[in-house]
Design a protein around this nucleic acid. Structure first.
Lengths: 157, 157
DNA sequence: TTTAATTATCTTAACCTTAAGATATTGGCT
DNA sequence: AGCCAATATCTTAAGGTTAAGATAATTAAA
């Protein structure tokens, strides 16, 4: 794209190999940052008695109150099997309940219970705090930049 | 850190809540970018007959030839149990072999075999290509920026 | 030197995720 | 109406990860 094997070149010229190396480097750095971050975040969630997917399901419900199972999977990027598994566990603990949809009998809503909301009122602020402090390496400006770049990267996939 | 509840403030002032929201946003965007990226990369690896951790182990050996099991785990951020499991599979397929360390009998090296090297000579360039095209949403400059920011973020954790 | 602490690898059990497919429902088309 | 593709949820089996702890070797300390 940026350069062929022509002779002359500006100082910003890069070969395909260099571009690929940069892509690979970004891939590695992104993976490491994500894993380190997630590792800590998962420990945080577990310390509140919730597996990470359970936490994410409940987080969705905390903000949307009631939502079809299907859409939860789309939001947190897991398959329907995983949704069934996690919703089952949360329902057994009384943190949410299944509510059949009247208009479309294929659909089941998940709805957060009072107990679920109380739990999350407790732990959500702590969670945000914890994520925030993990991001301590970047200042406000840098976070904005990183967010933009990652959003753009994500769209390109 | 950046603002207390003082009255005056410059136009760049942000409240703690805003900072935390920015951190959370970055967390979400990072997670999504990673998942989308990894999803594709994993499919790529599987199409070459290697599970993702197997691929990563072999990638390390492709560049280092021989390395203690322990250090592989550190590099790709998985536990010793996972290393044993994956090294077993790769060894059974003849892509690497275990070599006991003579100086320290607790240590076992993994060493890539000729077959392993040949396989990777084939698939590594394709893999790099594939990663590179996934990064197509960002130009060269942006990749450099993103890499720097993520490295900084990672160090802060 | 014996003891204790650390380090490397392996084992096991529990847990979570996915892919594939079963079941049921809906909506569109003829 | 009857048929067919699409959609939503659940089931099952297989695969991969971790935490905890077992074993063995090394190092440091007493």
């Amino acid at each position: 794209m940026s350069s062929k094997n022509k002779t002359a070149g500006t100082e910003t010229d890069t070969t395909l190999e260099q571009e690929q190396a940069a892509s690979l480097k970004l891939f590695v750095v992104l993976s490491k940052a994500y894993k380190s971050l997630m590792d800590q975040a998962v420990k945080d969630m577990k310390s509140h008695g919730l597996a990470s997917a359970e936490f994410m399901v409940l987080e969705v419900l905390y903000h949307r109150n009631r939502i079809p199972l299907q859409q939860i999977g789309e939001k947190i990027l897991v398959t329907s099997g995983s949704i069934t598994y996690n919703i089952d566990k949360l329902e057994k603990r009384g943190l949410l309940k299944r509510v059949p949809c009247e208009d479309d009998r294929r659909v089941t809503y998940a709805e957060i219970t009072e107990a679920g909301r109380e739990l999350f009122d407790d732990i959500f602020p702590q969670h945000v705090d914890s994520i925030h402090s993990l991001m301590g390496g970047l200042d406000s400006e840098e976070k904005t930049q990183a967010t933009l770049l990652l959003k753009k990267l994500g769209k390109g996939i």
